[in-house]
Simulated scan of single mutants.
Amino acid sequence: MADDETQMPDSNQPSGRRGPAEHERRAQIIAAADEHFRRYGYDKTTVADIARAIGLSSAYIYKFFDSKQAVGEAVCHLCLGKIASELAIIAADDKPAVDRIRRLYKSLTAQGVELLFNERKLHDIVAAAIDGRWPVIKRHEKALLALIQQIVTDGREAGEFERKTPIDETCRAILQTMQPFLHPVMLEQNFDDVDENATIVANLVLRSLAP
């Protein structure tokens, strides 16, 4: 049967997944989970709830995901993927690197605020993923680090940024300064000044990068 087919694991996919990577049933499960998590929240949703919504048994869900957390990771992966896609557009732009760094902070902040006010339940899932150290968070940070390195490399080649500091150290430091805007709880706690803080931090980072 097609449901029993196997493929080599995809290292870019959230952990805990089972079954064929592109199976339409998997997408159906994730869509149902996404809807339930948005409406009721991650903590109040069970695997049985997701299964019931699409007329399946919980046992069938476990053919594709080995736990509720694995389903949560898949939904979190979609949410964070949208954020990363927006940042990738900025990183690939042909504007000066200085401008792109500023826009990274601005975009991170805007998307974090969007989650907080318009997708509160997804905001809570991302917070749970960070607190639980879900692997999807590490992958997201790795993707952001690659985008930062792309911009810093361009800036160095264009003479916008200094070249003495090892690039790995520089990029990791920049990623650390983004944590208040990446972490949902930290962003919420400092919401009143979040836009101003993002601008201040971006300015400080850019001064440190200047040749």
Rank of each mutant, 00 (worst) to 15 (best):
A51S: 13
D34V: 06
E160W: 05
Q13T: 15
A146T: 13
F37Y: 05
L182V: 04
I30Y: 02
Q7D: 15
L187R: 02
K164T: 09
K121C: 13
G55P: 06
I61N: 02
Q28T: 06
A92H: 05
R100C: 04
E196K: 11
F161D: 00
R163V: 15
T199N: 08
E35M: 10
A27H: 15
V185M: 06
L145F: 05
V152K: 00
K121P: 04
R120Y: 11
P135T: 05
G72T: 00
S67H: 09
Q176M: 14
A74T: 04
H77Y: 05
K164R: 09
E157Y: 12
S58C: 11
E119P: 03
A198T: 04
T109M: 02
P211Y: 05
E119C: 11
P180R: 03
M186A: 10
Q176K: 14
D10Q: 09
Y40D: 11
P96I: 05
E5Y: 14
L204I: 11
T109A: 04
I148F: 02
I83F: 03
A97C: 06
K68P: 00
R172L: 02
P20A: 04
Q28F: 08
S11H: 13
S67A: 10
D94A: 07
R103A: 10
A31V: 12
A146E: 11
P96S: 11
H183D: 08
E157C: 14
Q150V: 13
D154F: 08
D49V: 07
D154I: 15
N190E: 03
R172T: 01
A158Y: 07
T109G: 04
D94K: 12
L206V: 08
V47H: 00
L187D: 00
K63W: 07
E169M: 15
L182I: 09
V71Q: 03
K82M: 12
V152L: 06
S67M: 07
G55E: 06
T177M: 14
Q13V: 08
S67W: 07
L56H: 09
R100E: 07
I125P: 00
M1N: 15
T170V: 12
Q28I: 09
N197W: 08
T6K: 14
D99S: 14
A158C: 14
I83E: 01
D94Q: 12
D124M: 12
E141W: 06
D4T: 11
L144Q: 02
R103W: 10
D193H: 09
A143W: 05
E22M: 13
R103L: 15
L206H: 05
T153L: 04
D49R: 01
I125N: 00
G19Y: 04
R133V: 11
I125R: 00
C79M: 13
